[in-house]
Write a protein that binds this DNA or RNA. Structure first.
Lengths: 340, 340
DNA sequence: ACACTTGCTGCAATGGTTTGCAGGCTGTGC
DNA sequence: GCACAGCCTGCAAACCATTGCAGCAAGTGT
């Protein structure tokens, strides 16, 4: 049924080798022959079977991507970057959704390992030991996790935290809550180190709350706790949580940004669509996806070359100031000062 | 590097045939032998190369999924359904993002055709002719598009429109705007037919506006047009647009739902997170993805069996009433009656 | 003791592609 | 007219797994 290289060979009256070369090493075949082959291939709608190629060359032209949850806008944006870049370099992507389960993460890379040239692991939650067992199975690139000798694309979350805190400090906030996400999150850790480093120099007191689930509901839940600590500003683990905070605040009648300022992380699409658009630290999600496939491919080319191997690629983050941050009102500031 | 069936065979001191059978036809091999083989395989971390299997059996255990845009929550939910179901039936998915470009759609299915058992096309925008050319290349299943003899999973958008309109009519609305999405959308057409059928029986006058881009901005833009026509309710093509409408309405100081009611379609996550939660027609996106892979697999099993082939699978839609719909205020109703 | 069935196992062919090697043809320089 | 180089091209092996067929040993029935 499907048209193979043999059909093309027959049609162009050459051997399969020639057809193969016409595609993969064009200047080794006579121009006229090549034209003929390509034309026949076109007519027949022939496309080489990458799987078969993979068997012999070890390079399939496929790359795998594993995400904890495709439906999470943070990861779907990242995935978008991966697919877009992959297409540009004529690769195809294998996708696996780990359903937020660390065990399936390991399992799925096993399932695709043989069919891909390498795998991009987006914010893997899996245990370091499991990760270690995967090394050697297939080339790996991590996004937002820094482990052993593995190449990784890292977003400068710590610096993002600094930017956010400086912004709040400049507005006059002196007491701000930080809502942590999942305990196992590398990005979360980074934010904490950034925050702790910046707090003294900004002269602001930070109240660390959490961990909370990094969801809308997590934000709703956290908002009340933050409020109880009498802060004038809230730094949420991500935009989803920030939106939850916003909602809860509105429900309780506290005005944003006059009573309380709110800052998120990520800058997902939704952030600019809220009734009062969200100030947030933009994470370069799509760029991260692109960078990861580039890194993967670079490492593949480098081959066994020992000194050209694993690298980290740092991507900058940037504070996007919108409308949920402003100087605290007199009242709010006073209450915060009272430390209530 | 990678461990092959030969390594296992050597390790277990049997032939490759036996190893192969131990995996694919377990009861054809002696229990003791099988145990040994499986154990060695486990130790070595062996996983069969599905690509190689595909070459000889014609069944790779991979399925392809093509979406117009992974970052669109509607499609990422659908994709989630596909990956989840695929995993349950021990398949792996190939993903392609067509970047909303009808031409890439065709191209990418070509690129994966040989490596997958079949392809799920989510709301393909491509021209019927191109679609026709793809048939025969590889088994296909459509989601939200009804074409020629192709198997498809269809969501009952028309009925959703009816539900929405009946709801509004019952609340007392007599003049409602419908904001159309992209002209080429099958779902969009369906909604219109549902709407036009329901309007007379509900005794409501519908104002058809559009097409608009199915985005937040599209909604912002459309809101003013709808307002100018003096309607008391707005039916938006999807939730993204509905949120845009909500935003614009808020900006212009018109109260939702007292002045104007708003209804969306899809029920993406965001819909329940808006300051006033959105009433919307839920589309079973994840279920649609799951149904599509089931349909694909069923058709594959049916094989060439001619009467067991293409089918349509209809999925119901359901109105989710939240807080953006209510009876129109006296004022609003009067203005609408005046037809302004 | 014999023929026959049953249950396992191995051999070898198969699938689509790439690639090292060798062979053929043409052209060049003397 | 000859040797030699340079282009092209084809042959055949290799990659990893599956599967029809045949072989072999043990068990069954008489």
């Amino acid at each position: 049924m499907a048209v193979t290289i043999h059909d093309v060979a027959k049609g162009a009256d050459v051997s399969v080798s020639t057809v193969s070369r016409a595609f993969t090493m064009p200047d080794m075949v006579n121009a006229a022959t090549r034209r003929k082959v390509l034309q026949v291939a076109e007519e027949l709608g022939y496309q080489p079977n990458r799987a078969a190629r993979g068997l012999v060359t070890g390079k399939t032209g496929n790359i795998g991507v594993v995400v904890p949850d495709v439906a999470n806008p943070f990861f779907s944006a990242m995935l978008k970057g991966c697919t877009a870049r992959a297409r540009e370099v004529r690769h195809v992507v294998f996708l696996a959704d780990a359903a937020e389960d660390p065990r399936v993460e390991a399992e799925v890379v096993g399932a695709m390992a043989k069919q891909v040239d390498g795998v991009v692991l987006c914010s893997p939650r899996m245990h370091p030991d499991h990760l270690a067992r995967l090394v050697g199975t297939t080339p790996l690139v991590l996004i937002n996790r820094d482990e052993a000798g593995l190449p990784a694309v890292l977003m400068d979350s710590a610096d993002g935290a600094r930017q956010a805190l400086e912004h709040l400090a400049a507005l006059g906030h002196r007491r701000v809550a930080h809502l942590a996400g999942p305990a196992a999150s590398w990005a979360g850790e980074q934010r904490l180190v950034g925050l702790r480093a910046a707090a003294p120099v900004c002269e602001v007191e930070t109240i660390e709350l959490g961990p909370f689930p990094p969801t809308f509901q997590g934000g709703v839940q956290a908002a009340d706790l933050a409020l109880a600590r009498g802060v004038t500003a809230i730094l949420a683990f991500n935009d989803l949580m920030a939106v939850g905070v916003l909602n809860r605040l509105a429900a309780r009648g506290v005005a944003v940004p006059s009573d309380v300022s709110v800052v998120g992380y990520d800058d997902i699409e939704m952030s600019s669509m809220t009734t009062v658009p969200l100030t947030t630290v933009r994470m370069p999600m799509e760029a991260g996806g692109r960078a990861a496939v580039d890194l993967l491919l670079d490492n593949l080319d480098a081959g066994a070359d020992p000194d050209a191997t694993p690298t980290r690629r740092w991507l900058p983050t940037q504070l996007i100031v919108r409308s949920t941050t402003a100087p605290p009102s007199q009242d709010a500031a006073a209450r915060a000062l009272a430390g209530r």
